[in-house]
């Protein structure tokens, strides 16, 4: 809470160009851990993760094209929801065609929740983006979610032949009103 943290974490591996993804949240420790889990994933392309407390990012930095924005909301903190809602205003509308997703943590400890799940479900529905639930404090769940995110990132960057970000988005959309929770 408070001091914004921005770090570039990257791991150069092989020939193909970088897939940068952006994690936006106020929960610094959780973001850091999730970013590290993501970078541990072995993939053929270079992964870059940028952490931010809120958007917009300062315009002076020279950064590569962003392929995926993940907004992390902690149900225990109304502040994290408020910051995400404010940040959403600064996202270019083209990102909402499959390059944005919401990641919710803290749903397991019900007694600590200040934000209702319906609120985040409505938010994800409003922005037509997938909503993922994960307890980021548990190592194994975090690793599994990191794998999912890397897979989505690869699709969004166009590195998976035959599927684009928009295709993936329509596959994830469930027939009823609330957006699908599963990837």
């Amino acid at each position: 809470v408070g001091v914004p943290v921005r770090t570039w974490l990257s791991r150069v591996s092989r020939r193909r160009p970088a897939d940068p993804s952006e994690l936006v949240s106020t929960e610094d420790a959780l973001l850091q851990q999730l970013a590290e889990s993501v970078l541990k994933i072995d993939c053929a392309t270079e992964l870059r993760v940028h952490l931010a407390n809120s958007l917009p990012l300062p315009s002076n930095a020279n950064r590569p094209r962003i392929d995926l924005i993940v907004f992390v909301i902690n149900l225990h903190s109304k502040y994290s929801l408020q910051k995400v809602e404010e940040s959403l205003n600064h996202v270019d509308s083209s990102f909402f065609l499959g390059k944005v997703c919401f990641l919710v943590t803290g749903a397991g400890r019900e007694s600590h929740c200040s934000v209702h799940q319906n609120t985040v479900m409505k938010l994800a529905h409003t922005y037509r983006s997938p909503l993922l639930f994960c307890d980021l404090q548990v190592e194994s769940f975090r690793a599994a979610m990191a794998q999912r995110l890397v897979r989505v990132l690869q699709v969004c960057a166009g590195h998976v032949p035959g599927i684009s970000a928009l295709n993936l988005l329509s596959l994830l959309r469930s027939p009823e009103n609330p957006p699908s929770k599963e990837l």
Partner: peptide, 22 residues
């Protein structure tokens, strides 16, 4: 109602109560 209380507190103490647990 709660946001009014939070913003009043923030104005005086620079602490975001919405990030804490009631």
């Amino acid at each position: 109602f709660m946001n009014c209380l939070y913003s009043h507190f923030h104005r005086h103490f620079r602490i975001h109560l919405s990030a804490t647990r009631l």
